[in-house]
Design a protein around this nucleic acid. Structure first.
Length: 295
DNA sequence: CTCGGTCAAGGATAC
DNA sequence: GTATCCTTGACCGAG
């Protein structure tokens, strides 16, 4: 099964999301602030639902929500977005649709969510961010939050231990949703597998990150260990192509055939594949056209 | 209206 | 310590 993330180009006006800047917010009264934030959030949730409906119509059964659906969610502390009737209403519509359509959903915190930072206030902010995404997840019926290990300050081993220690401080509800993904700069497949096995959480295998950063591990040796971290749930993996070259960390617009084929080979019958490329659903449709039997 | 500098949030690096 | 880049897509003020 293939999926894509966030933006849907095809839907034009309802395929992307609104943001609110702090600068703008500070010019407004508290009442106007809430009005602006609510309007953007409701709009973003509505657009997410439109995208999900489009996915269903096009038989795309996996989608990752934008993590910015509720603008400035942890900034505007006076606004309890989760208690807002319009937002609750939109969320339950999405939750119902997800349930009846069977679309597999997930959420991916932004890069500033660094659970293993060596700075205590960054860890606290990261936990706040995870609490926001967890709350939203429960309202949307999402069970998967995908995180990177984070910083390697102080050395990789220490940084991995900080991740493990800080993970244990999280509420169980968040812990049960977290999955860890290998990245392209600091923590490779072996590192992330170690953490996942230690904590008993699923590992997201990102094949392009592996191509950019690896210890020449034999993927077939690691494959079963990755599968095992899912404990019977259906595993997911990520796929993208380098923009300028095979190991360019920048994501390309589309997926190269060779990259798709090697991902397919790795996935076999066992993994769902989330596409991470600039052209989002268009890349998925292009793959489907090229490989009609294998998507 | 369009254009482009700017934007909550972190990290890594070079000096 | 501080300056600067990385990196995303939308905001928003200038023209």
């Amino acid at each position: 099964m293939l999926g894509f993330a966030c933006i849907c180009n095809t839907l034009k006006e309802s395929g992307r999301f609104k943001a609110v800047t702090v600068k703008t917010l500070l010019k407004l009264s508290e009442e106007e602030q809430e009005k602006k934030l609510r309007a953007a959030a409701v709009d973003n949730l509505y657009n997410s639902l439109q995208i999900l409906k489009w996915c269903k119509e096009n038989n795309i059964l996996m989608y990752r929500f934008s993590s910015d659906l509720i603008p400035l969610a942890t900034y505007a502390a006076h606004w309890h977005w989760w208690e807002d009737a319009d937002i609750q209403n939109m969320c339950s519509k999405i939750k119902d649709f997800v349930q009846e359509s069977g679309i597999r959903i997930s959420l991916h915190p932004d890069q500033f969510c660094v659970l293993n930072s060596d700075k205590p206030d960054v860890v606290q902010n990261s936990i706040k961010h995870l609490e926001y995404l967890n709350k939203l997840s429960n309202m949307l019926g999402n069970q998967i939050l995908i995180l990177h290990t984070g910083s390697k300050a102080g050395g990789k081993q220490q940084a991995m231990q900080r991740f493990i220690d800080n993970f244990k401080l999280l509420p169980k509800d968040i812990q049960s949703k977290l999955c860890l993904e290998n990245d392209d700069k600091s923590f490779g497949v072996s590192d992330v597998l170690y953490i996942c096995e230690t904590l008993g959480i699923p590992m997201i295998f990102d094949i392009h990150h592996y191509n950019c950063l690896n210890e020449e591990e034999n993927l077939w040796d690691l494959r079963q260990r990755i599968l095992d971290t899912w404990k019977g749930r259906r595993p997911k993996m990520h796929l993208s192509s380098g923009k300028a070259s095979f190991t360019d960390r920048h994501h390309g617009d589309y997926i190269n055939d060779a990259d798709y084929e090697s991902a397919l080979k790795f996935a076999g019958e066992d993994f769902d594949i989330m596409l991470e490329c600039k052209q989002k659903e268009l890349a998925l449709l292009r793959i489907r056209e090229k490989y009609p039997d294998r998507t």
